[in-house]
Amino acid sequence: MNNSNYFSRWVFGFIILLLLWLAFTFPFSLPELYTGIVVAAFTALLTAKYFDEFGISSFAPGKILGLLIYIPIILWEIIKANIEVAIIVLSPSLPIEPAIVTAKTKLKSNIGKMFLANSITLTPGTLTVDIIKDTYFIHCIKIAKTDEKYATDSIIGKFEKHLRRFVK
């Protein structure tokens, strides 16, 4: 996983932290900008050794484009799944068949697994309970079959092909 040198990680952390600072202090003045540059540079220096999966290469146009395409997809999935759950909550008989199932992922990097786990958790009806190596333990509110292949196809499949554009 150690695929970027210290300087490249530092530049990555600096840019991300500076953008965050600018967003937090939105109608910013010039002194605030100077303070932000100093604080971001110092914090990036302290934390660079922990973020070893990032670097300048993370800003490649293809990856940023993949992320930008992914955001509307995940928002649409969230809205669709929320409506399904709303129907379940409003129906008087509570038609639920909960189960904890396993599913396998092909993603290799930790950051990719993190994206996938958060996507699964954000769409209601599925909730990641734990990850051990490449196995996801997912609590489903309503699932037709509980075998691993079906769960992998129906829960992970729809996110994984989009995620593979920008994470390993």
Binding site: I78, N82, V85, A86, I88, V89, L94, I96, P98, T121, L122, T123, P124, G125, T126, L127, H139, I141
Partner: peptide
């Protein structure tokens, strides 16, 4: 919802 996990599912994410 009847148990904790289903409560987590419907509530926090909605």
């Amino acid at each position: 919802m009847p148990d904790l996990y289903n409560r987590l599912q419907t509530s926090t994410k909605a």
